[in-house]
């Protein structure tokens, strides 16, 4: 196993609403290893995006980070991102320097009034201090690397003159401009059509090999997880309920939620003529989190008197595999 690059532990991020504080992220522990791909998967509203945004301190009011630590080990001297002052140079270097980030809506993530070149060159100059000419040359080179045809011309194009896929490529070029060691991708293909999505995934994979960077990929698409991940973290209602290597997860899911999730993926041929299995019920409102295990009202294996009362223990199966479920509490070899 390679070196840990980023260690999130006990992260709690909440939002103030009129009905009270919503714990979008409720004690998340995650580790991203250098050069590896971690996929964070979960339904809408499970806190995966907020977790990603917390890393670069991008959570805006009325949201704020309440507790936890996010330790960056990419520097010779590791530091806790959450303890940095907002004006700290290390945070400025992290944002766009050591950590590149791409977003769900590529077109909306670029300012429509400035060319993609202007926004790319700006970022290059912030992080490398290159002069205008060198930065422009580097910008054209980056656009070429991310597969934008005729980069010398496209560098002067405005975002609204490019397709969504091209905008996402431009965003990736911006994220790469300072050779980051981590790329955070927050559902980068959700707004794109399937063909474009496959091309962007290919691009991310080949760039990852080329730049030797780690990727933290946020998605709700298990197909994407299978294609891209080394490790997977499954989130449910602000918590990581299961962690596993990608093969183990698909071959032997432990948590009932993961099992159900995998069960509801349609399989060509098998599912002909029958209803697609679904998980009964809906995700509870995080304001009224169920007592005990958050998943117990929807869980077929829930044990009355236990799951609806006590927080489930985190079971460590070794080798980076964990599951937050009482079902494995008395297993041999597993430690709570």
């Amino acid at each position: 196993m390679s070196e840990p690059l980023l260690e999130i532990s006990g992260l709690k991020t909440g939002f103030d609403t009129y009905d009270g504080r919503v714990r979008a992220v409720d004690g998340v522990d995650l580790t991203v290893h250098a050069g590896k791909t971690l996929c964070v998967v979960g339904e809408s509203g499970c806190g995966k995006s907020v977790t990603a945004r917390s890393i670069l301190r991008l959570v805006e009011a009325p949201g704020s980070i309440d507790a936890g630590s996010i330790v960056w080990r990419g520097d010779p001297e590791p530091f806790d991102v959450l303890e940095l002052d907002v004006s700290d140079k290390r945070l400025a270097k992290l944002r766009g320097g050591d950590v590149g980030m791409i977003f769900q809506e590529p077109a909306a993530s670029l300012l429509p009034l400035r060319t993609i070149g202007a926004q790319l060159i700006e970022t290059i100059r912030i992080h490398t201090g290159a002069d205008k000419k060198a930065a422009r040359a580097r910008a054209i080179d980056l656009l070429d690397q991310v597969g934008i045809p005729r980069p010398e011309q496209r560098v002067d194009a405005f975002p609204f003159q490019l397709s969504g896929g091209m905008c996402q490529r431009a965003m990736i070029a911006i994220a790469l401009c300072a050779n980051p060691s981590l790329l955070i991708a927050d559902e980068p293909t959700t707004a794109l059509d399937v063909t474009t999505q496959a091309r962007i995934l290919d691009l991310i994979r080949s760039l990852q090999a080329e730049y030797r960077m780690a990727v933290m990929f946020i998605t709700h698409d298990l197909g994407v997880v299978a294609e891209l991940a080394d490790e997977v973290a499954v989130m449910y209602l602000g918590k990581v309920v299961e962690r596993a290597g990608v093969e183990e997860l698909f071959a032997d899911p432990k948590h009932p939620y993961t099992k159900r999730l995998l069960h509801s993926v349609p399989v060509l041929g098998r599912d002909r003529g029958r209803d697609l299995p679904t998980i009964p019920g809906t995700v509870p409102n995080p304001l009224h989190r169920p007592k005990g295990c958050s998943f117990h009202p929807r869980c077929a294996e829930a044990i009355a008197g236990t799951c609806d009362l006590d927080e489930p223990p985190e079971i460590d199966f070794g080798g980076g595999r964990t599951a937050q479920c009482v079902l494995y509490a008395d297993r041999e070899g597993a430690t709570a």
């Binding site: 670069l56 805006e60 944002r95 909306a108 009034l113 912030i126």
Partner: peptide, 23 residues
């Protein structure tokens, strides 16, 4: 989103305000 994205790539706050939302 373009403000968050610009912040995520390290554009300093003053420059960010002037060049992005203010425009």
């Amino acid at each position: 989103p373009y403000v968050t994205a610009a912040r995520a790539r390290g554009v300093p706050e003053k420059q960010l305000l002037r060049r992005y939302p203010l425009r």
